[in-house]
Amino acid sequence: MTLDIMIPFYGDPAMLRETVGSVRAQTSPDWRLTVVDDGYPDPTVAEWFGALGDDRVTYQRNEVNLGANKNYEKCIAIAQQRDVVILGADDVLLPEYVAVVSAARAAHPEAAVIQPGVKVIDEHGTEVRTLVDETKKRLYQPRVTQRTVMGGEDLARSLLRGNWLYFPALCFDVAKIRAIGFRPGLDVVQDLQLVLDLLMRGETLVYDPAVCFAYRRHSGSDSSWRALDGTRFDEERRFFLTAADELERLGWSRAARAARVHASSRLHALTYLPAAVQKRRPDAVRTLLRHGLGGLPGSLAPRRGAGTAS
């Protein structure tokens, strides 16, 4: 198995160089890296890649800025191997990442998605424990100690109660995601929508708890400023209500109810209220309150997903 690692880039060149270095440091040689620069205004990026001298690494620059979603789609379209990772330009692969996902693929060739274990780092590369990530880990992430196959309504309900996946760490069967693609109009929850679409088509996910990926969380991320602005939660509300209708039609009533409740999303919105008040953003306060407290249909108690160990 050769893994296509794609980096849709528009951001900090220094962090990009660190990310590329982490790919080149893999213990397994079974990877190829492609960086798709979405027109970041810094000529030193192209110069750095031109001097890299590594034929496993390809750099290309878009003629016009496509935006995040369209650049993700381009990365998927140009992937040449069976499996693809859409790696964040500020995240870090630990040395065993390719080895871990390759072993999971060998054991489960039918799986559409592979999620390995993840730790969280800040902008300085220091491992951190944030409220969001600790909630994911302690309340929503399945407590398994070995590679486990998951799917169907149980996994859909688990993810809709609290999305414990980390999109940049996911390894996808590229043919299966090409058959679905990213839904238009989504900028924050496009990853969860993609996995949900796969599950509704009968596909499965493999979770391997071996920690081999470092996810960088910092205030400069797109999802962070969208959360403080409140627009993130407008999008999330539309997503959850649409998902509930689709799941109900599929007969997955428990997952549909989890989507309507969207407990973790509501609680997440409420955590931003103090910052919105402090910054005197009444528009954001109204959006956060509407999402956090509006139209509660039932219990907010989170539950864990289920799977089968391999």
Rank of each mutant, 00 (worst) to 15 (best):
T242W: 00
P109R: 08
E110K: 03
A227R: 12
D173F: 00
A77V: 00
H268T: 15
L196I: 05
H262M: 12
I114G: 01
L241C: 10
R232Y: 10
Y272E: 15
P95E: 08
K136G: 14
V211G: 10
L250H: 11
Q26C: 10
M15A: 15
L289K: 11
A256S: 15
S299C: 07
P41A: 05
E110S: 06
P282F: 05
T44M: 05
L250V: 14
A214E: 13
K70T: 02
S253T: 15
C212F: 00
R304Y: 06
Q60M: 14
N163Y: 13
F9H: 05
Y59H: 10
A263E: 01
K119W: 00
P95C: 07
V20I: 06
V144G: 03
A175M: 12
P168V: 14
S299G: 07
V174Y: 09
R257W: 07
R82Y: 03
R216H: 12
C212P: 06
T204W: 05
D83I: 04
T271A: 11
A156Y: 10
F239E: 04
A104P: 02
D173C: 09
S158Q: 14
D222T: 12
A243V: 15
Y215A: 10
L296P: 13
F49G: 05
F233C: 01
A210Y: 06
V101H: 03
L228K: 05
E203Q: 07
E18W: 00
V85A: 04
L3D: 13
